[in-house]
Nucleic acid binder design. Structure first.
Length: 928
RNA sequence: GCGGGGGUUGCCGAGCCAGGAAAAGGCGCAAGGCUUAAGACCUUGUCCCGUAGGGGUCCGCGGGUUCAAAUCCCGCCCCCCGCACCA
């Protein structure tokens, strides 16, 4: 059987028969969506996982009798596609390598993809082919791309709605920025510093005594201002600049950086730090006067280039002061008086379990002796910071006696800023951060940025409230969602660069690409009509959306404004009301903290409650032979290649069975191949047995049917919870084991379960199942009724008989191991009185009552103790009474061939003590 | 740090929520069958001991609850992921 051949055949036939095109009808509907892929590359096996889960479930629900809507679109807004076009245009070697080697784009085609439009055209065509070749049951009439004019109308409408509701506001925020390109810099545009994050320093303003010159010290620990003993400058050139009207003493680097912020900055003059050593500054809040001193550890390229010194809590400061105390040379060279330094005593202001001076203590712990032991000091600083931040309490020599450091920090910072003694300085956590063009990046404060106000309390609470009623799969993600909702802050939703929709009231800005992908599931309902040409951009006025999605407005007016017929509008509204809300959104776990949150927030902001999302399912990643996949760096296995190499059904089953829920799956080609062999065997078994005429039904057949039913039940239960791995485990692998045993046992009526088995597997391996199904039927198995658990087919006796045989064979073989030349196995079935006990006990299932009843029998009363022992033994196992002798006789040939021994049912040859050991269900065995 | 998840037999990975099996399944490995041979396929085995179906040890570490714990409780150690303005 050639998988690819039959797969293409059925894909064609399904498409021609339009069986996955959904329209409202009387059935119950099920609307399932998966995130549309971002097309800056080909779809890969990571996408395959999320999508296949969605498709398998769509198929499952369809077979369960639901009218399923399963649509798909393509996402292209944002910056990466533009970035990619630029890289291809520039003939970037790494990009060309990755895209030819991993994305399988032919070189000549790739070199042509130099504009975003070409990239979108190329990859959307590829994506469409991929999704089709793997056999997803998508209603393709509803496909769209996020740059479509009509889609943009929809986004504009949405943003007007949010604005009307007061959920969008202006603000500013810091971004990584290249002064040369004059643009924010994306991760992939960096030569160095990918891991650097933007850190917020607090600037504390120290005034030079008797002057208006400000020494702005940058710190991450503003609460330690109470412990300042001096401030540090590097012996170097600094500048004085006018910053928002104040005269700031800052490093040259800091001056450059400030130019990119929203502050007004004006250069005044260059100065030399050494002219200021020994002078005094005033510590804010405490108004103490402390000296300015030199220190080499000060980094001019970090924040303002000036730091305050808190020797009690900062190892660097402590070390620097000790260094100065020891080194009169330096003091002399700066013309400083020794007494100035000797007077300095660390001021402890935070209490932890550390004794004495905390900075000194940790320094010693890490073996740091002076400023030069940079690494040890770094470690010491980190550790002390952690400890004090989380466990420390402010002491009585501060304004926040008894307060936790973590809280005091916030309070001090706010106090400083509010009183004009503080400010904020953004800086990278790591350096250098270098743009692709070779320029050092800076942190720029983007002004007048548009924000979505996710932090708004009422909005959050509404989302949280709805979350409680939602189904989240796996369930422990509900907690995760809850936390994420609570943590979610305002989000900048506009950008200067990229593809996308412009903010309708401020066309300078584009709507950022995660922010235009929040409620697009509603758009699928329109997309069909747009693709058919009955809806055009000019029709899509705000009143149109208000009416169709929200049921608002007078229809005559809507008709007039949208230039659409009343009947048509009513129909659209009906379709929307039929399909909405989304019943299940199945997605990768990477989208939890962003897209899925926005999905909830925006639905709740815009739609009435009955259209809020019902359920969300989250799945894990896929790695490749143990390695993480990467679109931009490789390795990567495309969906298309996987299908081409292994077949659609093999790919589907492999990925669905590789792991469950949010745990990650690993693509191992060796295992994929082995799965292909399993599937081939499945095809072989079905083909050979499907058309066989049924013969007389035996106990073995009843066993098969009964066991199969239990697996049907298990499969359904698993699918209800979207556990594809568990479902496949029972529907495929476990059934396969049953079948193998059944055939080995000489079963003749496999076709008893084959219709159901094919149906059971159809959501997972739809092509193979369709092909096999058609050996016997003319209908589509994809539209058949999914097997339901049928309790009437359960046959405990048949199952017990089979288990009895299996156990008997096992036991005989176990004993046989110890024999030299075994020939005959004598089987001694438990005596009649034991059977009687078992029968009674199996009815009563209670030791006391069973004893009472049994003791009425004179015969048994004589064996009182033995009877009790037997009952105790029996109570340990599940007992189903079967005719053991008959079962053994029936299957004598099989037992003999499995054990290689002659089987004789007779107690005569068996030693007495062994006979005694026999109990119902477990006969005595004696081998000679 | 905060939040979420997790540590199971050679590996991957079920089971743990609803306590009762040396612990599903797959891979790997070994033996046998098949084959000219290899591969594929089929069967069996794969913690240790054991000349009678048995016994012992085991689920990150250490305690506890229980007739009984991988499963419940407490403490500890370790690992992974998110913390954004980026899809």
């Amino acid at each position: 059987m050639n998988f690819r051949e039959i797969e293409e055949k059925w894909q064609r036939i399904w498409q021609e028969a339009k069986i996955f095109e959904s329209e409202p009808d009387d059935r119950k509907k099920f609307f399932i969506t998966i995130p549309y892929p971002y097309l800056n590359g080909n779809l890969h096996v990571g996408h395959t996982r999320t999508f296949t889960i969605g498709d398998a479930f769509a198929r499952y629900m369809r077979m369960k009798g639901y009218n399923v809507l399963f649509p798909m679109g393509f996402h292209v807004t944002g910056t990466p596609i533009i970035g990619l076009a630029e890289l291809i245009e520039k003939r970037d070697s790494k990009t060309i390598e990755v895209y030819t080697k991993y994305h399988d784009v032919p070189l000549e085609e790739l070199l042509n993809l130099t504009t975003p439009e070409k990239i979108v055209a190329y990859f959307s065509k590829e994506a469409l082919e991929s999704l089709k070749c793997i056999g997803y049951s998508i209603d393709w009439r509803r496909v769209f791309t996020t740059t479509d004019v009509c889609y943009q109308k929809f986004i504009e409408w949405q943003y007007w709605k949010l604005k009307e509701k007061g959920l969008i506001d202006k603000g500013s925020h810091p971004v990584r920025y290249c002064p040369h390109d004059q643009n924010p810099v994306e991760d992939h545009d960096l030569l160095a510093g990918e891991d650097a994050t933007i850190v917020e320093y607090t600037v504390i303003k120290f005034n030079l005594e008797g002057s208006d010159l400000v020494f702005p010290c940058a710190t991450l620990r503003p609460e330690t201002v109470y412990g300042v003993t001096n401030i540090w400058l590097k012996p170097a050139k600094y500048v004085v600049a006018k910053v928002n009207g104040e005269k700031w003493f800052i490093s040259k680097e800091a001056y450059e950086k400030l130019l990119h912020t929203d502050k007004k900055v004006e250069f005044i003059c260059e100065v030399d730090a050494k002219d200021f050593f020994g002078k005094k500054v005033v510590v804010p809040l405490t108004n103490r006067k402390v000296p300015i001193l030199p220190a080499n550890f000060v980094d001019l390229d970090n924040a303002t280039g000036i730091v305050m010194s808190v020797p009690a809590h900062a190892p660097f400061d402590f070390a620097a002061i000790e260094d100065l105390k020891k080194n009169e040379e330096i003091l002399k060279s700066f013309g400083l008086d020794k007494s100035l330094v000797e007077k300095i005593e660390p001021i402890v202001i935070i209490k932890t379990d550390l004794e004495g001076i905390p900075a000194k203590k940790v320094m010693e712990d890490f073996g740091a002796k002076s400023q030069k032991d940079f690494e040890a000091l770094e470690k010491a600083t980190k550790q002390l910071y952690k400890k004090e931040f989380h466990t420390g309490l402010m002491m009585e020599n501060t304004e926040f006696n008894g307060e936790k450091v973590a809280i005091a920090k916030e309070k001090v910072e706010r106090k400083l800023i509010d009183s004009g003694l503080g400010d904020v300085f953004y800086e990278f956590s790591e350096k250098p951060v270098i743009c692709r063009c070779g320029t050092k990046c800076v942190v720029k404060l983007v002004r007048d940025q548009w924000f979505i106000k996710y932090s708004k309390a009422e909005w959050k609470n509404a989302v949280l409230k709805h979350l409680e009623r939602m189904e989240i799969i796996p369930d422990y993600y509900k907690e995760e969602f809850k936390n994420k909702i609570e943590w979610l802050k305002d989000k900048a939703c506009a950008r200067r660069k990229g593809l996308g929709t412009r903010i309708p009231w401020d066309k300078e800005w584009l709507i950022e690409s995660l922010s235009d992908s929040t409620i697009y599931m509603a758009y699928y309902i329109l997309a069909k009509h747009i693709n058919e040409g009955s809806l055009k951009a000019e029709n899509l006025v705000p009143e149109f959306f208000d009416y169709v999605f929200l049921g608002e407005g007078k229809i005559e007016e809507v008709a007039r404004k949208s230039k659409l017929g009343i009947e048509f509008l009513e129909r659209l509204r009906r379709e929307f009301e039929y399909w909405y809300p989304v019943d299940l959104r199945s997605s990768g776990k990477d989208l939890v903290a962003n897209h899925l949150l926005f999905y909830l927030f925006h639905h709740i902001a815009i739609f009435p409650e009955r259209y809020y999302p019902k359920a969300i399912a989250v799945n894990g990643y896929v790695s490749l032979e143990g390695k993480k996949m990467s679109k931009s760096k490789g390795p990567l296995l495309t969906m298309k290649k996987a299908v081409k190499n292994y077949g659609a059904d093999v790919t589907r089953i492999y990925i669905l069975h590789a792991s469950e829920y949010d745990s990650d799956a690993d693509w191992k080609s060796k295992e994929v191949e082995s799965l292909a062999a399993h599937l081939k065997r499945f095809c072989g078994i079905v083909s050979e047995n499907y058309m066989k005429e049924p013969s007389e039904i035996t106990t073995l057949d009843r066993w098969l049917v009964s066991r199969f039913q239990k697996l049907v039940k298990e499969t359904n239960e698993a699918m209800q919870k979207l556990q594809t791995r568990r479902a496949l485990n029972s529907a495929f692998f476990e059934v396969m084991n049953l079948v193998r045993w059944y055939l080995k046992r000489g079963g003749k009526n496999l076709s008893l379960i084959l219709d159901d088995w094919i149906k059971l597997l159809s959501p997972f391996a739809p092509h193979i199942c369709e092909e096999l199904w058609h050996m016997k039927h003319d209908t589509f198995v994809s539209l058949e009724k999914y097997p339901e658990y049928d309790e009437s087919k359960i046959n405990e006796v048949a199952e017990a008989c089979e288990e009895y045989i299996i156990r008997l064979i096992d036991d005989i073989n176990e004993i046989k191991k110890f024999m030299e030349n075994p020939e005959v196995a004598y089987i001694g079935i438990a005596e009649e009185w034991k059977m009687k006990v078992a029968r009674v006990f199996s009815e009563v299932r209670n030791v006391k009552d069973a004893m009472k009843k049994l003791m009425e029998d004179d015969e048994l009363r004589k064996k009182g103790k033995e009877v009790l022992d037997l009952i105790k033994k029996l109570s340990m196992e599940k007992i189903t009474i079967i005719d053991e002798k008959y079962v053994i006789e029936e299957n004598k040939n099989f037992i003999e061939s499995e054990t290689g021994l002659k089987v004789v049912i007779s107690s005569e040859k068996i030693p007495k003590e062994k006979i005694k050991a026999a109990i119902p269900g477990k006969p005595a065995i004696y081998i000679t």
